[in-house]
């Protein structure tokens, strides 16, 4: 039976697409963004066991090479996550499609659909295809929240069973992208155009960093000119909450000023992105 590592499921979310949605966060991400605010979702647990001794609730133990998490004992203090040297979490569940569907079924009366996120959910495309097919049977929509690392054109099967994608375009300029996301951005930009062309781009998100005038502007200009009024453009203010300390020092220990972010929304609107807004 196919299983995927799920970091958490939030039954009601109002910020992951239209209406009220159940958000499913998968573990693992091919990017390593400096401003990632849930860096514990980047890697799978290596079983080093460092967290086991430090757990104040005794909710972690070693079983062979693996760390096992007892959710009933866990008090949610996140000590394990803070200690983990590998940007991973011992608190994940290896779930079957039916396990996830069961949780969606419970929330179904109250939600418009689900959004899969992460980490990067497209690392688990085979799982998503089965999940989305089952969720459609419940009469609910399925959106993909993606960093754009997976080439949707090359293998369009997951897109075929999804209502659309919410795509992060974090950086456009090549060197800045290499530094910020530790990954080539070409595939992201290719996805931007492809998803637009097939009408499956629900929204694009760009994080506006404090005091990064040039980088912010390059990214916003590029995205706005490409999407025009084809989809929503969510301009996100950087918030230091959850960001690794060393990167907070690099990017800023304070959130992006609202007025500063609004300037980029105004720029996007000026360039034709009619559905740009700041959150």
């Amino acid at each position: 039976m196919m299983r995927a590592p799920v970091n958490k499921i939030i039954p009601f979310s109002n910020v992951d697409g239209p209406g009220n949605r159940t958000s499913i966060f998968f573990q693992g991400c091919p990017f390593n963004c400096l401003f990632c605010h849930n860096p514990e979702t980047i890697h799978l647990c290596r079983g080093c066991g460092l967290c086991v001794q430090s757990c104040p609730a005794g909710a972690l133990r070693m079983e062979g090479e693996s760390v096992v998490w007892d959710s009933a004992k866990c008090v949610g203090c996140d000590t394990c996550i803070r200690l983990c040297p590998h940007d991973a979490s011992p608190k994940i569940r290896w779930m079957t499609v039916e396990d996830v569907v069961e949780e969606v079924r419970r929330a179904a009366p109250y939600i418009e659909g689900i959004t899969t996120s992460g980490g990067e959910c497209t690392l688990h495309n085979e799982f998503l295809i089965e999940l989305f097919t089952a969720v459609h049977r419940l009469g609910k929509t399925c959106l993909i929240d993606s960093n754009g690392s997976f080439d949707f054109e090359k293998d369009p099967r997951v897109l075929a069973v999804s209502e659309g994608v919410m795509l992060d375009v974090k950086a456009v300029e090549r060197h800045w992208s290499d530094e910020l996301i530790s990954h080539p951005r070409d595939v992201v930009l290719k996805n931007l155009d492809y998803l637009l062309s097939v009408g499956k781009l629900h929204e694009v998100r760009t994080v506006i960093l404090p005091n990064r005038d040039r980088e912010n502007e390059e990214t916003v200009r590029y995205v706005a000119a490409h999407i025009a009024d084809g989809c929503f453009y969510k301009i996100i203010r950087y918030r230091p909450y959850g960001v690794r300390e060393r990167y907070q020092k690099l990017l800023g220990e304070f959130e992006t000023d609202a007025a500063y972010a609004e300037r980029y929304a105004a720029l996007a609107l000026e360039l034709g992105a009619k559905k740009a807004y700041v959150v």
């Binding site: 979310s13 910020v15 992951d16 958000s23 992060d168 969510k234 996100i236 950087y238 959850g242 959150v279």
Partner: peptide, 10 residues
């Protein structure tokens, strides 16, 4: 308090 999910998008 019903918080919004903090995890989206950054």
């Amino acid at each position: 308090v019903q918080h919004h999910d903090e995890s989206a998008g950054q």
